[in-house]
Design a protein around this nucleic acid. Sequence first.
DNA 1: ATAAGCACCGTAGTATAGTACGGAGTCAAG
DNA 2: CTTGACTCCGTACTATACTACGGTGCTTAT
Lengths: 134, 134
Amino acid sequence: MKNITVGKLAKYTGINLETVRYYEKIGLLPVPERTESGYRVYDDNDVKRILFINRAKELGFTLKEIKELLNLKIESGKKCGDVKNIAVRKIKNVEKKIEDLIRIKSVLEKLVAQCSNESITTNECPILEAIELN
Amino acid sequence: MKNITVGKLAKYTGINLETVRYYEKIGLLPVPERTESGYRVYDDNDVKRILFINRAKELGFTLKEIKELLNLKIESGKKCGDVKNIAVRKIKNVEKKIEDLIRIKSVLEKLVAQCSNESITTNECPILEAIELN
DNA sequence: ATAAGCACCGTAGTATAGTACGGAGTCAAG
DNA sequence: CTTGACTCCGTACTATACTACGGTGCTTAT
């Protein structure tokens, strides 16, 4: 998919056209090429990028963090250490999220199981078990 | 921990005192008991609840969704089907999040590995690989 | 018994992340 | 060559989730 307009980009990704401009303004989307008449021109990569942004948001990353994720690339050997450090931090962060989600999932599964054998009543909030106190 | 004040609750959970009142207003925290003079009284369970809210937020749940999660309990046998339906939906949602996070994690790990053998340069955005196009 | 430190309340302000508006120019189908 | 759909832009508005303010009342340590 090459040379698509902002309207199509918005349509393909399910976001608002104005949101595309907004993402451009805050540096989340690269400044696009323009046609002679000044229309923005996008392609595949922009679609991918927005889909990634959409998912990352649902995973609890802020736009600022998403920007950081998207900027994680190794540019001509230099700054490799920085990239590595950030990536390692992000990995830890992601691992913690996965752990918590697994814990939430297992509580939900337990709840469904209890629902199946009708009889049991939980008057306390079972989901609270998903978080460990320290 | 019993009979703690709103200030202590805020301190233990790392949230702002005003946020506690806000959570109460939107029904995310139960209406607490009051002292004779009208002070809110909290305990362990409220601490747990707020810690859960804090984590759930970082996992990309909105306050509305968190409320739904916290209300997932089986009350005296009835409405068990509803609870089950909601829980099953939430499980699917959580599974999708876990999958996406695993994919993001593996991209980040690949990046760190590339960083380690110095030579490779990635000029494109590697994190975009974490989302599959369909 | 008095001052510092909490808590009460409603209301207003802030940050983040969009979303809408409206007047003007552009493109493409008939 | 016009009409309708699309795009441009800046600005302003909205929703969510807090966060601060400020006047008053309560609690507690000296």
